[in-house]
């Protein structure tokens, strides 16, 4: 019989030590909306689970003049109440809030969503668009990793043994900025993205786009930062021509698979559609953030 040990440390250091010292499979537990399901269906059989929710730093949301910091285990329900984050990065908050039902929202977190390693994670393209950087703690100390660099393959992370994501740091956006995330699912709720697109952009006083980022999910083995998407918008007034170029860049960046959730052809096309639609929402938000 295999046994399962559960620990709930109260400091980052203790969590890192427990995970680093574990012999056999060890899993960090945030909201558990993926891990507990995997346990119940025998997909994983870890010997150690380290619950991160008693560590204050992982459960806090803070903002100063320059940046916003969101603890990795902060739930969607809590983040959805944060006026500061909602005002700065509504697309990120909306992306996290798309995950699961009301009950799941009480648990699901940005850190868990990222570290599950799914290419289809809803919050990840929005975080990539926002330029979010992970604060990663491990046995060797703390380092910073851009969100787009964390997932290296489905279920695989650029994190070493004992490393955990502590928080996400996003810049405070300048005036005339906006972001948005859209996903396509065949239903309206309770589903996994067939395609996800996050767009963040900033306009100059003249309405010309000065900064843009495009993140895509579920269209490649990992979530993508699409540099060509940014190039399509920067220097334009985000007109139809620029949006068409953005859509083309999004479609061109896709490297999807045919699977039970969608075909290659479908994902490639809809990635362009969603990138354009998300950009239009981000544009509207940027214009009203003058």
């Amino acid at each position: 019989m295999t046994s399962l040990r559960y620990e709930a440390p109260e400091t980052v250091e203790d969590a890192v030590r427990l995970l680093a010292d574990a012999d056999g499979e060890a899993r960090a537990l945030a909201g558990g909306t993926d891990l507990l399901v995997q346990l119940r269906t025998d997909l994983v059989r870890p010997g150690l689970i380290v619950d991160l929710k008693r560590i204050p730093r992982l459960m806090e949301v803070s903002a100063n003049g320059a940046e916003i910091r969101v603890g990795a285990a902060v739930s969607g329900a809590v983040l959805g109440k944060s006026e500061a984050v909602k005002a700065a990065w509504p697309g990120v908050v909306e992306a996290l809030e798309l995950i699961g039902s009301t009950q799941i929202q009480g648990r699901a977190s940005l850190g868990g969503n990222l570290c599950n390693g799914s290419p289809a994670a809803d919050s990840v393209p929005a975080l990539i668009a926002a330029g979010a950087v992970c604060e990663v703690a491990g046995p060797g100390g703390t380092r910073e990793v851009p969100v787009e660099d964390v997932i290296t393959a489905p279920g695989r992370l650029a994190l070493g043994p004992g490393e955990i994501v502590v928080s996400f740091v996003m810049p405070k956006p300048p005036a005339r900025s906006g972001d948005a995330y859209l996903r396509f699912i065949p239903r309206t709720e309770m589903d996994i993205a067939v395609v996800g697109a996050g767009v963040a952009l900033t306009l100059g006083e003249d309405g010309v786009c000065t900064h843009a980022r495009l993140g895509l999910g579920a269209v490649a083995p990992t979530p993508l930062l699409v540099e060509d998407g940014a190039k399509a918008l920067i220097g334009t007034k985000v007109d139809d021509e620029a949006l068409a170029a953005l859509a083309a860049a999004a479609s061109a960046a896709c490297n999807p698979i045919d699977d039970k959730r969608g075909t290659v052809e479908y994902r490639v096309k809809v990635a362009g559609v969603l990138a354009r639609r998300a950009a239009l929402i981000a544009l509207e938000r940027a214009r009203s953030n003058g």
Binding site: R187, T188, E189, K260
Partner: peptide, 28 residues
């Protein structure tokens, strides 16, 4: 609109759950 069994080439069912066997939810 959405319900179907998806089999792989070996005849194994790929979507034995409500996540990927898509019955409508109330908001649909």
């Amino acid at each position: 609109l959405n319900e179907e069994y998806i089999y792989d080439e070996d005849g194994r069912l790929e979507n034995p759950g409500f996540l990927d066997y898509r019955m409508p939810v109330a908001s649909d």
